[in-house]
Design a protein around this nucleic acid. Structure first.
Ligand SMILES: [Zn+2]
Ligand SMILES: [Zn+2]
Ligand SMILES: [Zn+2]
Ligand SMILES: [Zn+2]
Lengths: 161, 161
DNA sequence: GCGGCAACTGATACATTGTATCATTTGTTG
DNA sequence: CAACAAATGATACAATGTATCAGTTGCCGC
């Protein structure tokens, strides 16, 4: 009788979690204890985490977590389209727009670690056409733009969190 | 008296090597034995290699090569703009257009491993504008498009090389 | 050429990230 | 409940990348 792991999410987070869980099921992924736990942690953290950072956070609640387990859970969640992997930082983050599966762009701030997910039509069109022009049929598009976000670039602004 | 490593490049490769070496020097990188050796191997191989594949190939000629040494050489060559790192495969490849430092796009074939480097104005413009729109000042743009190249997609074509 | 200094190297150890394997457990289906 | 596929637990290992520090090398001005 494996009950859900104890977490204390806010009401909104709870709803977000349910929405993500529904999407996983719709897309043919079983939603198991480990997968739910990974989802919870990513939601609670609100930023990108490495697989081993996830593991650290899961261990206290489930001493049986292992690297392989975490990677397997992440694999399933990426399959379901609710998690993305950041290739340039080797981290994982919740999808911000999981309703429709998509090929997005990720903007990563060096300063605060913030990741913003975009779905820019011009970028998508341009990369698609580039593939065509060079005779490639693309099945994965990694677009990761790194720099400083507005807040981190502001000259002497108080660090408003 | 560390003489240059023994390699037997073609005449054309030799010229390419000299051109790359000149660029490294122009851009303020010392061109040492290890760096030259890494450059040679990448040129000889003509495809992307992981740091440890490079190490395997360097060891026979220079038993003192170490992972740290290879990574340091690669770091310098990337600084000089003559080598790129493929984030999505964790490999390194010679730049095809090293004359002008650039933010290019890489197309990677799953079938044959071929990497094609592009400098598409529309993609560059679109990613640049996306960054601006979201208030980011970008300093790195990773655009890696993976799929099947024309040859690998050809239905029953003979494997013409 | 020669001293002095910064950059680079060699050596070693270690840190991080990701997989393989296989016996066991769990969930679903009939 | 039986049977089967999927997922897990446990363990070990593979692949990728860094830290440290003593010693060496290349460069620059004399
Ligand atoms: Zn997304
Ligand atoms: Zn920021
Ligand atoms: Zn290039
Ligand atoms: Zn191909």
């Amino acid at each position: 009788m494996p009950k859900a792991l104890k977490t204390h999410p806010t009401r909104a987070a709870q709803q977000a979690l349910e929405r993500l869980e529904a999407l996983c099921l719709e897309r043919g992924q079983r939603l198991t204890r480990q997968r739910r736990a990974v989802l919870c942690q990513l939601l609670a953290e609100g930023r990108a985490l490495s697989a081993y950072e996830l593991l650290e956070r899961l261990r206290p609640e489930d001493g049986r977590s292992t690297p392989a387990g975490v990677y397997r859970a992440l694999e399933s969640l990426m399959q379901a389209g609710v998690v993305h992997r950041l290739e340039s930082t080797r981290a994982f983050i919740l999808c911000e727009h999981p309703e429709a599966p998509h090929t997005g762009q990720l903007l990563i701030c060096r300063g605060c670690g913030q990741v913003v997910e975009a779905e820019d039509a011009r970028v998508s069109a341009a990369t698609g056409r580039l593939g065509e022009r060079l005779g490639f049929s693309l099945d994965q598009r990694v677009v990761e733009l790194t720099g400083l976000c507005g807040r981190c670039r502001a000259p002497h602004a108080a660090h408003a969190q």
